[in-house]
Each structure stands twice: as C-alpha cells, then as structure tokens.
Amino acid sequence: MIPEPTPKTLPDQRALTLWLLALVVALFIASLVVGPAGIPPGRGLLALFTGQGGAEVLVMREIRLPRAILGLAIGASLGLAGAAMQGFLRNPLAEPGLIGTSAAAALGAVLAIHTGIYASFALALPLMALAGAGLSVGVILMLAGPRGNALSLILAGIAVSSLAGALTSLVLNLAPNPYAASEIVFWMMGSLADRSLLHVALALPFLALGAALIATTGRGLDALTLGEDAAASLGINLTRLRLKLVLGTAALVGASVAVAGAVGFVGLIAPHLMRRAVGARPSRLLAASALTGAAILLAADIATRVIAPERDLKLGVLTALVGAPFFLHLVRRMAREV
C-alpha cells in the first residue's frame, strides 16, 4: 500500500496577514523617507508629523506623503481587484483590466491631455478618466446582459478594451504636436510622481467604495469554485454578485488609472503570489492579495526613485519589466505541477 502523502499544513492565516501588514508598513515608511531631496529619514519623519522644518515639511507633506498613500492604496486596489476577478472568472490569467475599465479610463485621460483642458484645470485628467471608466461599466453591463455568464462578461470586456484602445491610438494619431503625443505616451506608462493630496482625495472615495463592494463577495467567490450552477443552488445570487464585482472592480481600477496611469501586472501577480499560502480559497485570497499588491507597488515606486533618480523611470514600465519574467516563472512552476 502506498502511504498517504503527509498533508500540507497551511500557514496560520493570521500570521500571514500580520507579516504582510508589517511588510506594507515598512515599505510605506521607506517610501516616505526615500527621495531625491536627500532628507535624513529621522528629520523627514519628524517634519512630517510635527510640521517643524520649513522646506522639509513641504517635501514630506506635499510630495512624499501623497505618493506613499497612493502607492499603498492603488497597489492594494489592484491586488484586490485582481483576486476578485480571478475568483469570479475562475481563471488565474484574469486581471482587473479584463473588463475594459482601464482602457476606457486611459482613453478619458488621454482625451484630457489631447484637448489641453488639464493644463488649465489639473483635476480634469483624473475626472475624465473616471468618466471613461464609468461609461465602460454601462457598456459592459449592457453588452453582457443582466444574467450573462462569465464568458459573456469576458467577451464584452474584450470588445470595450479593443474599442477604447483603438480610440486612444486615434487620439495619439491626431495629436496636435509632438509634445502632446509624448505627454500622452509618458502618462500611459503610469507613475506616482508629482501627485498631490488632491489626487488622494479624489481617488480614495472610489477606492473605498470599490473595496467595500468587493469585500462582500467572498462567500459567493468561494461557492463559484463549484461552477455557476452549483453556486446558484447554494443560494448565491449570481446576478447581484456579478454587479458588485463589475462595479467594485471598475471603481478600484478606474480610480487607480485616473491618478496613476496604467500600472500593469500588479493585479495579475499579487493573487498568484498568495494563492498557495491561503490554500487557494478565493475569499481568503482577497485580503492577502490586496496587501501583497500594496507591497509590490510601494516597492516598485521606491525602486523607480533609487534605480534612476535622474531619469524619471516610469512605474508601469518597472512593474512590467519585473512582472513579466516573474509571471513566466510562475507559469513554468504551474506547468510542472500539472
């Protein structure tokens, strides 16, 4: 008789959450004290909390604090949205941009740059990006129908993404001058540099709303492990679950793109990193993936400042550069296990 393999004991969930929390807090502080101004960490933090120290207070409160908050909040949002999307579609390759929100939000932002209105009113860019995200949600829900299944949602998302992508290319194509074109291209690479507390105030309500909507989907996502029919028979209202998911993901991703541009791979990688540690349960993955996303984005944003402080290395470029090979590694590991 072949002996049973010893059961893999899951690491204690609470310990995992605490470790991730500690990591995120450490990276948040690191994000506050790293920067081209070269302020000693102790003095910087003191200036941040006490408001004593002139220019240092300004740097800490107006430049680094918004940047660190956005890194934390957007990273968490992308990680959360990615975990929810993968759970809902029961596909580890799903990412938050799949339903077309990021492409539509980017289109809105690109239009704001193209028309130049953001030069006179700085918040026009994120506001137009949010409008694009909102519009895409309406189109998605219309295309996929009120009772549509996961497949119709994916197809509707691909349609919206392609259309928004094509329109973005059209705007680039018709750019009035090379400066506008390069501005659009650089914006699309994603960055947290030079964001203000106004950006934070604009994005946070949407991020909080999205997180609150997604946080209630855990039980439904778990039940979906058995397929849509079995989940429905367990009392899960799939129509409502899907609505919460689409609205929640759109709020998270739309607001993220609106203030940071397109930052890829975080929403795809974060759930993968944590899936095994939480025993693959979709509900447990939500919080772990959100914390991991926050850690990844904070670390990546610090790296852009450390690696090439003079060159304004874009955040989205870095996450893709590091994310893609890492993703390949995960795929290879998965292929070996099957």
């Binding site: 059961p7 029961r90 979906l224 058995l226 899936r275 025993g279 693959a280 349960r281």
Partner: peptide, 8 residues
C-alpha cells in the same frame, strides 16, 4: 464536476 481551485 467542476473544482476551479486547488482547495483542500
């Protein structure tokens, strides 16, 4: 017989 994730 659908089991989407490698849960226990």
């Amino acid at each position: 017989r659908e089991i989407a994730w490698g849960i226990s």
